[in-house]
């Protein structure tokens, strides 16, 4: 177990380094001077100032040196300084990460509770009206892009019904609901379908017959024998879909003006505020690989047939 964790940790570092290096390379080849605008409009720029800015941010160095500097600072807990505010990236992103976490956690809870719950009920009431409606709605939802859902939700609940303000306030727990649903609903539909399919299979399994033949009450058969087996693929799915959840967060936060790292990312990309872009990506990848490990550990815990190696 200890050796397994150590090896996984090593892998995670490699993934993190690889991902940030690729990102660095991409940003490097994007045309335009990310810090030029700091020295005024294009015409009035003093080349000396621009040069100094380049020096300050290390942009005069070759890519690999820039990257090395970044990594070196990173291991010392320094994520660099952004171009527009000239504040430490960690300081800027910290509170935004909290806001995004609220959104992401709410979304995952929604996926797990509503998605899995709806799917489980559909499986238990197979061929019922409920099952048909669930199948229909989830099929439609899966085809929708996140931004369309977000626009529709915003239009309906903020503009038409005026239940919530158009600009979200992350400190108000009620206001997390709308963006969280937007972020979660496609995955929730997928989770519902996955749960339904898995559970229908598990319900037919021999060991469920064994449990009934043993005289286990139906409720317990469902809650213990069926549920325990049905959640395994769902947990795995929610874990691996975390990457696309982060992608969806960029869109959702932008639509709902939710002051999280997703919105920071999309603004930073437009402004070529590269330290922020790199910062968000670094954290995103770090959280992603860490979560993958958690999912693998959870998977092994839920299914004793899985050996960690």
């Amino acid at each position: 177990m200890g050796r397994y964790l150590l090896r996984r940790l090593g892998q995670m570092i490699v993934v993190l380094l690889g991902a940030t290096l690729i990102l660095f390379a991409c940003l490097f080849v994007i045309p335009g001077d990310p810090v030029g605008s700091l020295a005024g409009s294009e015409r009035s720029r003093d080349p000396a100032v621009v040069e100094q800015l380049h020096k300050r941010y290390g942009l005069d160095k070759p890519l690999i040196v820039q990257y090395g500097t970044y990594v070196n600072k990173l291991v010392h807990g320094d994520m660099g300084e952004d171009y527009t505010q000239r504040r430490p990236v960690a300081e800027i992103l910290g509170p935004k990460l909290v806001n995004t976490s609220k959104l992401a956690i709410a979304a995952i809870v929604f996926d797990a509770v509503i998605g899995a719950g709806v799917g489980a009920l559909a499986a238990l009431k197979r061929y019922s009206l409920w099952d048909t409606v669930v199948t229909l709605i989830t099929t439609i939802l899966v085809g929708f892009p996140t931004f369309v859902i977000g626009m529709l939700m915003l239009n309906l609940f903020a503009v038409q019904l005026k239940w919530v303000p158009v600009i979200g306030d992350p400190s108000d727990p009620v206001q997390v609901v709308l963006p969280a649903i937007t972020l979660a609903i496609i995955d929730a539909a997928l989770v519902a379908r996955l749960m339904r399919g898995t559970m229908l299979e598990v319900l037919r399994a021999d060991y469920v017959k064994t449990a009934i033949a043993k005289g286990v009450p139906r409720r317990q058969v469902l809650l213990k024998h069926v549920m325990r087996n049905s959640v395994i693929p769902v947990v795995t799915y929610i874990g691996i879909s975390f990457g696309s959840l982060l992608g969806g967060a960029i869109i959702t936060e932008t639509i709902f003006n939710w002051d999280g790292i997703g919105m920071a990312m999309s603004t930073a990309i437009q402004q070529q505020n590269n330290p922020i872009v790199v910062g968000v990506a670094t954290w995103g990848v770090a959280i992603f690989v860490l979560l993958n490990l958690v999912v693998d550990l959870l998977y092994a815990m839920l299914d004793p047939r899985i050996r960690l190696s």
Binding site: Y207, R228, N229, D303
Partner: peptide, 10 residues
Amino acid sequence: DALSALNPVF
């Protein structure tokens, strides 16, 4: 088939 008749996770 005892393998499928026993619950794999307990």
